[in-house]
Structure formats: C-alpha cells, structure tokens
Computed example of a mutant assay.
Amino acid sequence: MSVVFERPSLWRRLQPIFSGFDLPLLAGLVVLGVMGLITMYSAGYDNGSRFADHGRNMLLGLGILFVVAQVPPQRLAQLAVPLYSLGVALLLATALFGITKKGATRWLNVGVVIQPSELMKIAMPLMLAWWFQKREGQLRALDFAAAALLLLVPVGLVVKQPDLGTAILILSGGLYIIYFAGLSWKLILPVLLAGAVAVTAIVLSADRICQDDVTWPLLREYQKHRVCTLLDPTTDPLGKGFHIIQGMIAIGSGGVTGKGFMQGTQTHLEFIPERTTDFVFAAFAEEFGLIGALALITAFTFVLARGLLIANSAPTVFSRLLAGALTMSFFTYAMVNMGMVSGILPVVGIPLPFISYGGTAMVTLGLALGMLMSIAKSRRLIQT
C-alpha cells in the first residue's frame, strides 16, 4: 500500500505571506502613491530623472513595507533597545566626527555617507513602546520622566546639528507614545497653555523682537529669521520670504478647480522653489485647485483613521502604542508640510508623504507603514 502526499500549490505556499494585509490601508496608500506619481510627472518631468526616480523610490518603499510586514510585533519589540542604542551612538559620532555641509553637521561616513537622525524616526517610537510595555499595569510618574529623558537625548543631539525638521518628527513620535501610554491631562494642559501664550506673545510683539539687533535665546539666527519671515514674508520678499510668498501665490492661483494637469504657470516657470520636494504641495494645489487639495487631504485622513483603528484593536500594549505613534507621525508629516507651504507654519524642510521626491523619506515611510501593517496582520491572525 503506497501513501500519496499531495504537493501544495504555489499559491497555497505563498498565501501565508500575503494573508492578513489590511486592504483598506493598502488601498489608501495606493491612492496617495498614484497622486504622488501624477504630481511628480507634472512638476519634475523636465527636472532630469525625477519622475522615474520617484517611481523607483515608491517601489523600494513598497518592497520594504512588504518585508517588514512579515516581522511579527514581538520580534519588532526585541529590536527596540538595539536600534535605539545604535541610533544614539551614531548621533554622538556625528557630533564628534560628522560631515558638515552648509553649516549643518548631519551626516556620518561609515564607508557610506548616512544621516543617523533618520534612524531615530523609527527607533524612538519602538523604544518608548517597548519601555511602556515592560511597565504595563505599574506605571508611575518616574516612568514617564524616564521616557521623557529617553526622548530628549536624541532630540537634543539632532537639534544641535542643527536639523529642526527631523527633531520635530522625532519629538512628536515620542510624545505621541507618552500621551497614548496615559500621561495625565493635568500635565499636558499647562504645557499647551504655555505654548499658546508664547505664540500669542511672539505674534503681538513681532515688530520689536524681529529687529536685527535682537537675539533670541536657544535659537540660531536663521531659525529666528524663519519665524519672523512666517509672521511677515514681505519683510524679505526676495530672500527668506520668497519660498512662502511663491507657495501662497501658487496655491491661491489654483482657485477651486485648478489650472489643469501640467498647466501650472508658477510651477513650470520655476517660480516655486523646491517644487518637487518640500514645496510640491504648492505645485499640486496650483494644478488641481481646492478640489484636488481636499481630495489629497481626504486620502491622508483616511489613512490616519485606518491607522488609528488598527492601533485601537491591537492585541498588546506595545503594538497599540507603536501603531498609534506611527500613524500620528504620518499625520505630522502631512500637517507640517502643508502648513509650511501655506504660510501657516515655519519652513522646516519636512517632505509630504508619497508626494515629495526623496529616497530616504520613502525608505522611512516604508519601514513605518510596514510595522503598522505587521500589527494589522497580527491582529487578524489572532482573530482567525
């Protein structure tokens, strides 16, 4: 008597790899990716190989997302301390031996030139999620203080480089974790109130404190100029204010329906600086108008809502905190970029996810969204 074993089909062998993906989240990312490709073709078709490179970067980010999604959250938790330690060590090495360009020491040569601060965008939320997971059910005020210290060390090193945009992203990712872990509103409200008072004071006294002979504490001169230019771009229309003014002109000239695909005069006559990177939203809004901008914001909002839903139903404290922080960090990218291009926030050099050109940013997005997808997969596997 012979026993016959049926060999599983190729699809059956591959099915565990593809199963469990959150299809609504994936659909939202695809919509953003398509919008990014359309925008990059119009804004960058005459800028070398920007469109082809943007497509390549998207495929790279998608590949990273797919690979990271296969790593279970418990394995991600094991990487938290090593990644955080490596990131801080590289930031210290950058401060001591880094490469300086245009007055900023942000890069380190380790055989290849890297920017260690990019690693902390992922390592920081991983570390703090791991920290609070270990203290589940026994949180004390001292635990929040230790978490704040873990956050402020890399943020301080990045601010010193200086790189305010990356520091904001690292700081926000850590603060989201601390908030979701249960930080009391009694501690949050005074900080928010102090921030509101400070912003109001700066706005009301802008004419006096923005004089050339006034020095701002804790801020470099160029950072002071960024804030003062935000308050009144016309004080330096051909210098610091040029980016903001041209961005607002492009957005306003798009009107309700936009000028049409590849018909943006501000974009194609090269009035918009960095039209394929930091200020790509101005190029998008000029050609697709208010309707297009609302469609883009809707797509970002859908991804945000889906990510928070994944976080809410995550099976462990670690995965819940990590998913929430990664989702809100994605929101921060979009909010800060649109805000600075619209003249609401200072220009800090933060890309618009999937729309702006940039290989490093796409890799970081692939890692973050891959971890979010991993958490979604783990939830579905538990349910089945």
Rank of each mutant, 00 (worst) to 15 (best):
V363L: 15
Q138P: 06
A334H: 11
G173W: 01
L193D: 06
I310P: 07
T332V: 14
M58K: 00
L189K: 12
K224F: 12
F132T: 07
S117L: 11
V3K: 01
T215W: 02
S205N: 15
L326M: 02
M328N: 03
I177D: 06
L29W: 06
V348T: 13
Q223T: 12
W107Y: 12
E274Y: 13
T100S: 08
S329I: 15
L367I: 13
A305W: 11
L369G: 04
D213Y: 03
D53E: 15
L321A: 00
S42C: 13
G48Q: 01
G241Q: 08
A282G: 03
P273V: 05
N109I: 02
T298S: 13
K186E: 08
A194M: 12
T332S: 10
V214A: 04
C210D: 08
A314V: 08
D53N: 15
L296E: 10
G258H: 09
V199H: 05
M373C: 14
D143V: 03
S19P: 08
A145M: 07
P351Y: 07
Y84I: 04
L126D: 03
T215N: 02
A167N: 05
I114R: 15
L269F: 14
T234Y: 09
K259D: 00
E136M: 11
V336T: 02
A167V: 02
P116H: 08
G252I: 07
L175Y: 02
R56M: 06
D232R: 14
S374G: 10
P273S: 04
L381K: 08
W11Y: 15
G255F: 09
G258S: 08
P73H: 08
Q74C: 06
M262Y: 06
G247E: 08
L142G: 09
L218I: 03
I350Y: 10
L193F: 14
L189E: 06
A194Q: 04
L365Q: 02
R140L: 10
V159L: 15
R306M: 04
S184V: 09
R56S: 06
D232Q: 12
A129N: 03
F288H: 15
P346S: 08
V153M: 07
L90M: 14
L76G: 02
G103L: 06
A282T: 03
G28Q: 14
V71M: 08
K240M: 14
Q263Y: 08
G241P: 15
L90S: 12
